[in-house]
Design a protein around this nucleic acid. Sequence first.
DNA 1: CTAGTTGCAAATGTTTTGCATTCAC
DNA 2: GTGAATGCAAAACATTTGCAACTAG
Lengths: 162, 162
Amino acid sequence: MTVSTNSKRMTRQRRLVLEELKKLKNHPSADYLFGVVRQKMPNISLGTVYRNLDVLVNSGQALKLDLAGGQCRYDGDMSPHHHIRCSVCSAIDDLSESAVAGIDKPRVSGSDYVVTGWRMEFEGVCPRCQRAKAENPGSQEEASHTVHAFPNMSVTQPESEE
Amino acid sequence: MTVSTNSKRMTRQRRLVLEELKKLKNHPSADYLFGVVRQKMPNISLGTVYRNLDVLVNSGQALKLDLAGGQCRYDGDMSPHHHIRCSVCSAIDDLSESAVAGIDKPRVSGSDYVVTGWRMEFEGVCPRCQRAKAENPGSQEEASHTVHAFPNMSVTQPESEE
DNA sequence: CTAGTTGCAAATGTTTTGCATTCAC
DNA sequence: GTGAATGCAAAACATTTGCAACTAG
């Protein structure tokens, strides 16, 4: 389970994984990133990518986004921001903190847990999939049922803000 | 993929899965629930439990909690509340809405996504694991690095009970 | 009857791990 | 030189699915 000492060697593989992750802005999965780094280092293995991502995350240089949808995604951008996931194509995009109203630093009281953190994620339909749906209304929706729905937010509101 | 017609039969298996889930208060995984229902119906299969949980979720009778930690958990309690997950033992407990300050209905503006929902989860250490750690400080922490940490929230507010 | 459902097992997809070899320090 | 890191492939998991047999309505 994860490395914990701090005697880390900077191998070529590790440097490459780190560099490419920082470059990518699409919150890649380990597998996607594997595909990218493989172009520059064809012999690197998927296990190595996973191991190095783990090192990155545990040393505070990247974020592991354990969002809905099975696969974990990674983010090289450590500045505070939220994420929104397209329920159709699983794209993940950033949501600046100022774009979200109604969320302060949550504070928990009256629990016998020692609260150490929280995680939040938004779900929606990205512009590409909105367009695709408009042109091809037959394709079935995903409506994951694992989120709090916005009750009266009709799924037909291109961008006007409420 | 999931079922989509509405001609559902109430089989013995389905009824049992539903009943037992409603009874359990510990947000069981499919596998755990499988173990429970198997005591009353030894021949039921895990696939059937998954399929019926899916039916339950899609018909609005249960919640699928796709939280951190790989395994999905299910909740038969549909009343609005938050969840907190123990980072040590993965227990999931309820957090009443009134226990959480700082969270309104979040509202998103300035995104080109059509926002349909959000998901939120707290992380902490449950009372049992707090006690275990106090007695055995050697055991390693999990500190999942996949959440927003509470910066200056000291790990000290036992409130003990249970 | 008959279409939805089940049990079983095999398949899937993601992530982890064991191990001999290699390499960074 | 030595322990950390790699490549590879197998293992470990959670979940899904194909299919023949079964059953609720």
